[in-house]
């Protein structure tokens, strides 16, 4: 196969990888924020993404709303759902600092969502077909599917939005502070529940955004989310826990690894390669490739 390799092909693999990885990236940012304040991996992240992909599908098929336009409804909806999830499901366990219960609730949520989705939309794969679904831009002979390019754009914008919120607002600063030391934030008069709820809102908000981009790019079924959550976790480990830009870069890197891996090693090895990289990073650079080395005062 080596004789087929051209510069153009390599560029194509890179572009596909980057476009592919952005969705892992946004999911990883959500995981990172929730991990930051609650110290749990929110395993239901993937199921939530698929859930919002279905909501987007519903808006499209039942109401005829364009998927990208539906973001205007899905973002507020998902933010509210995040707050509701925290106060409804996780607040009690968080108050007891009971991480095992929080994890079990998250896992329970996966089963609940997967079954709910199967009842509502059946187990058949669904996809959204619009006028632009198969539209491909071809600058310099490189294929750039429009929907993937939009996914990249949306991922970059959401990362910038989350960063601005965390850096420029007082409550965002409080979220970053709480991910370092919850007790100390309480001593500043900051309600830990409020900070957790904000982290959940953003985390679930990002699943809403990822759900829309998923629905425009792939076909999906109710159990598609679990592998997605695992990939987001790998992206998070690559980027470094508690680092928003790192999480996005980790996602993109994972996309690249998968894209190059499936070409050079074979598509069947995709996930194996991803997990090998995951284990290597955890063994040799557990703070993540883009993580700050861990300093404790």
């Amino acid at each position: 196969m080596w004789e087929y390799i051209t510069f153009g092909l390599i560029v194509q693999l890179f572009v596909s990888g980057i476009l592919f990885g952005t969705m892992y990236g946004i999911a990883a940012i959500g995981l990172s924020l929730i991990f930051g304040t609650m110290r749990i991996i929110f395993f239901a992240q993937g199921a939530m993404i698929v859930f919002f992909a279905y909501i987007c599908y519903w808006f499209f098929t039942l109401l005829g709303i364009d998927p990208y336009l539906s973001l205007l409804l899905i973002i507020p909806l998902s933010l509210l759902l995040g707050v509701a999830f925290y106060y409804g499901l996780f607040k009690g366990a968080a108050a007891l600092e009971d991480r095992v219960s929080s994890l079990l609730i998250a896992v329970g949520l996966i089963f609940l969502l997967e079954n709910l989705m199967t009842v509502l939309w059946t187990a058949d794969p669904r996809s959204i077909v619009t006028a632009y679904t198969s539209y491909v831009l071809r600058p310099w002979e490189i294929n750039m599917p429009f929907t993937r390019l939009m996914a990249l754009l949306i991922a970059v914008l959401s990362t910038a939005g989350v960063l601005l919120f965390l850096k420029k607002t007082l409550i965002g600063t409080a979220v970053r502070a709480a991910s370092e030391d919850v007790v100390s934030t309480a001593l500043m008069g900051i309600n830990p529940n409020w900070v957790n709820a904000i982290a959940f809102a953003i985390g679930i908000g990002l699943t809403g955004i990822a759900g829309v981009t998923l629905a425009t790019v792939y076909s999906f079924d109710p159990v598609y989310g679990f592998v997605f959550a695992l990939k987001a976790m790998i992206a998070l480990a690559l980027g470094g826990f508690g680092n928003v830009v790192g999480a996005l870069l980790g996602g993109i890197l994972l996309g690249l690894i998968e894209s190059l891996g499936s070409f050079f090693v074979g598509a069947g090895w995709n996930e194996a390669i991803a997990f090998v990289v995951f284990l290597l990073v955890l063994s040799f650079k557990p703070e993540g490739l883009f993580g700050r080395s861990v300093e404790k005062g």
Partner: peptide, 16 residues
């Protein structure tokens, strides 16, 4: 042990 937010700036600590 002071428990500052060590990844935040001095001003951000004071803001909180």
């Amino acid at each position: 042990g002071r428990r500052l937010f060590s990844n935040l700036t001095v001003l951000e600590n004071l803001r909180l």
